[in-house]
Write a protein that binds this DNA or RNA. Sequence first.
DNA 1: TTTTGGTCTTGATTTGCGTCAATGCTTGAG
DNA 2: CTCAAGCATTGACGCAAATCAAGACCAAAA
Lengths: 254, 254
Amino acid sequence: MLLQPKKFKDPVEPAFGDPNCGGCVLDPSGCLCDGCKIRPLSVCNVLNEQEIKTFRNLGHSVGYNAKTSLFSQDEEADAVFNLTEGMVRLYKLLPDGRRQIVGFALPGDFLGLAFEPTYSFSADAVTSAVACRFPRKLFEAYVDQTPALLKRLHEAATYELTLAREQMVLLGRRSAEERIAAFLIGLRDRLYRIGYHSPTLRLPMSRQDIADFLGLTIETVSRTLTKLAKDKVILIVPDGIRFLKMEKLETLAA
Amino acid sequence: MLLQPKKFKDPVEPAFGDPNCGGCVLDPSGCLCDGCKIRPLSVCNVLNEQEIKTFRNLGHSVGYNAKTSLFSQDEEADAVFNLTEGMVRLYKLLPDGRRQIVGFALPGDFLGLAFEPTYSFSADAVTSAVACRFPRKLFEAYVDQTPALLKRLHEAATYELTLAREQMVLLGRRSAEERIAAFLIGLRDRLYRIGYHSPTLRLPMSRQDIADFLGLTIETVSRTLTKLAKDKVILIVPDGIRFLKMEKLETLAA
DNA sequence: TTTTGGTCTTGATTTGCGTCAATGCTTGAG
DNA sequence: CTCAAGCATTGACGCAAATCAAGACCAAAA
């Protein structure tokens, strides 16, 4: 459910909000905060009921079909996003087309906070996804008068930074097999933390996405997964994998 | 001057502050904020003269000899640091000894903000260095009552995050030659921003440090620098390099 | 002065992963 | 049902960077 929310097979043109966002406004009157499942895990958890009422009116809940864009590198950073459903890939492109995925965003993750006036990376939906979208100006003004939210955002940024540094170690110093192991375990851990417990790890992204995240090629990803499956460390199932020897994987990823 | 502050050849035991910090307290009465050259470029620039007076009493200015440690991975994160002079390498170690340098800190950079109760990486001085050292508890309490400082710290963390993502692209998708080019240009740009303009780029870190930052081996770093020198793109000088064909380097780093 | 230890460079060789290429599998259109 | 279009897997081969090895350079110690 978390990773595969309902499909938006026939995207309607947004009737409200920014027509360029590529998504479809689900709740023009604001985020559906009351029934929001990831709210306790997201930055908005520091706002009380009174504050939420103001906050939710700053933005809208927007749905995105798989493979559609939330925002793109170098385009004006005029909105921030709080992902509530689905998975989003964040990536940077080199001029010659090489791509590096810098992260997969999960429900509860906050996206688009830019230091510069433009986005420094692109974001598009891996699965269909839903996000609360806030105009940047309004959001920043609200943050400026709500130190508790600022503090929470800073914590989130600090956490992101530790993840980014982990990824640097992976990209700079780990073998293909270690990268795959660390990726599988890391994703499982992040999903676990947001309440998605399962013996099977769903991998909604393509092999190419995994390759571009791990600094490998699609062939190496495929071969390495096959090798781990041959060694009975994992089992490859449709749309994902199952863990067979967690210990072995954890040794590789250590 | 910035990169090679006066040496602390004969480190005295600190008479004040934490005796385990490995450094030498230069100003027991607080940071030497009045004459601080990098203050306008650091996070403390948001504090007015009145606020600085409170703030400076929270910590001490501490000197570190080259190669001594400011803090280490997994040790209790009981202090934060604002680097004022010298260069510090930040790195993570894998259990088998492989090392990934996740950044080189320059004057004005803020270090040690941890999400967890322990540091997630190690930091030691490349050159001799000076930092304002604040007990974490005191610092956090002050930040909590000073939203402007919190905002500035959040900006700094966001900036760090964009640098970290750039580094992911470098580690995941660039060739050895491109990595070296991007490293040289990136370091020059950062030094330029803090007022260190020079046609010569000083490289106080070892080849091994550069290798561990770029995800290469020391031999590849050496060979690649030699190749760039043979191609007359750079000139290798004692302790650094000089730029000859900036344009060519920028193309490689693009 | 020579020696020692550290860092850097250079050359020879190996190798892990990339590249190229073919084939298989799945899904949806017709 | 067949067919086409993507994606994934597998194999053969190539190459950029790692590894192994030797020597150069430099500074400090003896």
